[in-house]
């Protein structure tokens, strides 16, 4: 859970920055960043994560870093697409005509307009990443004991599944509940932030 929030947090901040620059910056830089993002997305995630975690040894920060690395492209692409759609819009032109600089346009005018969809995708990603982290911990290369993790708890329970199946049920329950609550949060945010459904 902590791993999921932390890695998504890092990915959102980095992805937003990369996306804004790729969308509003010089075209060559945008192309370059896009190429890097595409390269990352084309790597097989589970295999790569297994390889990295095996090489560097399991640990909280390695896990967070790996998950963040693979979730950045999604956010960066989303932000870039939004930014590209807005960069020639009249209000950005108006800001430029007033002499607004690059950081001001990026953070005061573009960021608030791209953050809505981003938050929604983020809340919907959290359950996925919780599942991923649980999966990696289940494989034994995630969070190491004695640090508790829903995934490793589930793993521990698995050993006794024939004797006390409830152990698996109850260690799996928080994962299901957390996943569901974040999905609902995401749905609610989407309805709240979508200008089409919002009352003016």
């Amino acid at each position: 859970m902590g791993v999921a929030l932390l890695s998504i947090g890092i990915a959102v901040v980095a992805g937003t920055l990369i996306g804004l620059v790729a969308g509003y910056g010089p075209r060559w830089l945008g192309m370059l960043l896009l190429l890097v993002l595409d390269t990352i997305s084309s790597l097989p995630m589970i295999m790569f994560a297994l390889a990295v975690l095996t090489l560097l040894g399991p640990g909280l920060w390695t896990l967070v870093g790996t998950i963040a690395f693979f979730t950045i492209p999604g956010y960066a692409r989303l932000v870039r697409a939004q930014t590209l759609a807005l960069r020639d819009s009249p209000f950005i032109q108006a800001e430029r005509s007033m002499g607004a600089g690059f950081p001001r346009i990026l953070f005061i005018h573009l960021l608030p307009n791209v953050i809505g969809p981003l938050l929604v995708v983020m809340t919907m990603d959290i359950p996925v990443v919780i599942g991923l982290e649980a999966g990696l911990s289940f494989l034994g290369i995630g969070i190491q004991p004695p640090t508790p993790s829903w995934g490793s708890m589930l793993n521990d329970g698995f050993v006794f599944i024939r004797n006390t199946p409830l152990l698996v049920v109850f260690s799996g329950l928080p994962i299901v509940l957390a996943t569901l609550s974040f999905t609902f949060l995401g749905e609610a945010l989407r309805e709240r932030l979508d200008p089409a459904t919002r009352r003016g």
Binding site: P90, F91, A94, E95, S97, M98, A100, I108, H109, N113
Partner: peptide, 30 residues
């Protein structure tokens, strides 16, 4: 700083997430 432009589509030329008060003082802040 010494010249300004009024765009054809007035509503679209106002940054949607800023208040009117913030928008009219934006040039001063820039």
């Amino acid at each position: 700083r010494r010249a300004a432009m009024i765009f054809q589509d007035a509503v679209a030329s106002l940054s949607p997430r800023l208040t009117v008060g913030r928008l009219v003082t934006e040039p001063l802040s820039i």
